[in-house]
Design a protein around this nucleic acid. Structure first.
Lengths: 134, 134, 134, 134
DNA sequence: GTGGTCTAGACCACC
DNA sequence: GTGGTCTAGACCACG
């Protein structure tokens, strides 16, 4: 788990940790069942307070992303989204709006944006649509 | 400017205003030169503190999205990104990572995500790539 | 908000606070839109650390029970369960199993248990089944 | 004793064991005098540490639910509640409050809750009220 | 004044 | 050893 955290960014430190862990899982760098560093270890390597790491872990647990087992550690859970389909759609649309809005204001043209999207998509382990009968 | 603001959302109210205005511009609902409501008017219609609207306007101005002409009002500026290409690329990539990460954890498959992206893109006025010589 | 908290009980203090608030809402002592005491006020009256109250409030917010508005306070939200029907059923069944198991081991007979249930139900504002067409 | 234990649940493993054994007794799947598996056997089948099983057995013994006869094993004891009537009433009321509170927040209506209660009650061997003179 | 974040450090329950 | 809870106290963003 080699990554860093930047206290000067507007995102809270515990949120940065959450994002990074979810990102690693989404990219396949962490898989179901893998053990995460202990709260204390990660706190030591990031040079932050263990409580901050603990908060990130706990929130990830309530999101269903990881699962802590008392006394033995914290592990990557299997994907099983807890949000209702409606909320999921809303969330994706919100992110898309943000993306296109920023792209517009940075004067990015449609083609190069679509290029970036396709390139970036490759480094994530997105699932493939199930066809009827499979 | 008919929109609402939800004080119970985690996004700060002034950020919601900024996003909404930038989003309207990006969708073509507001164009360069259009006049925005006064701080007081917008505050009245959104039923919030005028300082909050003021903060949003001020930040949008430093971003170069709008411009205030003393005495005559606030207007939508023309697009002229102030960020360096490197920063722009970093920002887009950050948004893309967030998008794909969330999509993964919501168990969205690649095809339907790409579908949503294309559909949503249509409601934004993204520019077309400039060809050599144009 | 006159209630107390017992640090010697096995339930964590922040959980006791959560239960008590949810219980008051369920009994109609608190209604949608009502303002809860501020974090600092409640901490003072319960003679505990503000962080502990804050934790309870935050978790209640993620459960959708209350809603905090930055700068102005914390309010009772309207009921809108976030759990899937399957999880809800599982949770109720778990509570019922616990109830009947305890009742058995306390040698409580069925009739007096049912009596207690009916009596206790009266002090809660349980909704009435919607009939077809209503 | 075919049951499993889930280390990722918030309930401690030894508590899960206690609940499951008490539940089985309350449902009539285990009766007074029945022999429980040895600590080692149960630990092996549940794939957990023997100390954890030992802790559960020990606490069940102090509750009077089971009794250990050195050399011959552990057996289900006869029901003989050790709590005072006042404490028992308090405990039942606490469970009922929890039940109705959760039901309210899950928007469960009174009729279907009462239905669930009656259905679930059938799988437990609750005693029948002793009439005067019996 | 409101809640949110972070730290430092203590103590505890679990396995 | 693991994570979870709580305290005391500082600082910050929001409206």
């Amino acid at each position: 788990m080699l990554f860093t955290v930047d206290p000067s960014r507007s995102e809270a430190v515990y949120v940065q940790i959450m994002h990074e862990i979810k990102r690693r899982i989404a990219r396949g760098l962490l898989s179901t069942g893998d053990r995460l560093p202990t709260v204390r270890d990660l706190a030591r390597t990031l040079v932050i307070n263990p409580n901050t790491v603990g908060k990130a872990y706990q929130l990830l647990e309530t999101e269903g992303v990881i699962s802590t087992r008392r006394g033995s550690g914290t592990f990557v859970a299997s994907v099983s989204p807890r949000l209702s389909p409606a909320l999921r759609r809303e969330r994706v649309n919100r992110l898309l709006d943000q993306l296109f809005t920023e792209a517009y204001h940075m004067a990015l043209d449609e083609d190069s944006l679509m290029d970036s999207i396709k390139k970036r998509a490759k480094s994530f382990r997105l699932s493939v649509k199930r066809r009827r009968g499979e």
